[in-house]
Design a protein around this nucleic acid. Sequence first.
DNA 1: ATGATGCTCTTACGGTGTAAGAGAGTCAAG
DNA 2: CTTGACTCTCTTACACCGTAAGAGCATCAT
Lengths: 234, 234
Amino acid sequence: MATRHERAGLSREKVLDAALELVDQVGVDGLSMRKLGAALGVEAMTLYHYVPNKDALLSGLVERTATRAFTVDPAAGWQAMLRGFTAGFRRELLAHPGVVPLVATRPVTTPSALRELETAVAILRAAGFGTREAFHVVNTVATFTTGHCLAEVDPPGAAPPALAVPDPAALPHLAEAVRDGLGTPADHEARFAFALDALIDGFARMLARRSPDEGGRASTASAQGDHEGGPASA
Amino acid sequence: MATRHERAGLSREKVLDAALELVDQVGVDGLSMRKLGAALGVEAMTLYHYVPNKDALLSGLVERTATRAFTVDPAAGWQAMLRGFTAGFRRELLAHPGVVPLVATRPVTTPSALRELETAVAILRAAGFGTREAFHVVNTVATFTTGHCLAEVDPPGAAPPALAVPDPAALPHLAEAVRDGLGTPADHEARFAFALDALIDGFARMLARRSPDEGGRASTASAQGDHEGGPASA
DNA sequence: ATGATGCTCTTACGGTGTAAGAGAGTCAAG
DNA sequence: CTTGACTCTCTTACACCGTAAGAGCATCAT
């Protein structure tokens, strides 16, 4: 039995790293200070020198995830900006399925997140949206992405619920859809793209209605390169 | 000290009722079997004769809420159907803010929910959408509503986070928006309507693109009475 | 060497979900 | 009414949780 009380060389960052990994393995309900300490080779109480309490630790997880996830390209047109933002958000959420319920539940007000929000709004304003509309647009795509990813990741600690072909002749459309791969990763991917196309197209039409000279040609749904930005601001 | 062991006259329904009320007061994290028992004038272990375990109790809460929330008018046109569905869903979620994180997290596969889903898809198919598209549409509005309501209700046990005017000159748009009521109930309401208009308009344009004879006049975003249904099926 | 400070530990307390079983309440058949 | 079967409620117990309090080793500045 060598010396006890050895230094473990921890840091808030390392604690958050280990917590993220643990949450992704056992789900947020499976995370406990004792398990996290064990994963770091340390007693539970030691963690309280790096984090004031468990709630702050969880907030740290969403802060970290949200900061990585919220990226807005200031040079992109408004449609490409929205696509890039949502794609990055979703990518980060799917990379850490365990924290999805956390980011969905806790409000994100990181300074960096607010800054990205500000530039996103600036892009939309420059494209012709009103301030209120611009916030609606950004918040809408954010909440949509959150809701979508919540449905896309499976519940914390259990295996996927199997979705056994539940319907003989009573639910014909559902039966057909399940047979055609409803609920598969490919289906989620397709639905995300589908919904984003519809949303952005709907936004474009609202924009066209308030400034008819610009929006008319935003008819094709999946705009790959959109450089319709007006007189750049911000 | 009268006789002990008196019958409390409970039932699974009454237990769920009390649980729902308790969750709405203290949040899902504040719910414990002992507190719930106390609220019903009974010891914690008694509850296990009406519910196999706490997880099943929580699932019962989402089942009940989801069953009340998922209502599809089979006679409505597809746009009115979607508006009615989302409005009812949101109304039920806002009526029980404590369970919103639960319904957002747990998959809903109630028989009644599947039936409503089936008729919603039938309406969309009759309107001209493909089967895959129809499921995408329904799932999209459902996940969007979930995500929106998650952001609309404030976190479980705490007071609203105050959102103190966070921005002097660094975040001008955000400052303006906060001053104009961003985050207020009215703002949430407006954003929900805004997003739903955009989404449905986007869907209508997809429909128009695959069957150009019908969708051309679906241009105004907020269609109040839409009776564009094709040859009724289902 | 001597503090001072930082990090880790042990111990303890009140809370949680729930397994096991004892014991009352209720009802049906004799 | 008596007897049993069954249903409901209780008590007890266990392992686990977050974390408050404080003891004590490790490291570094003096």
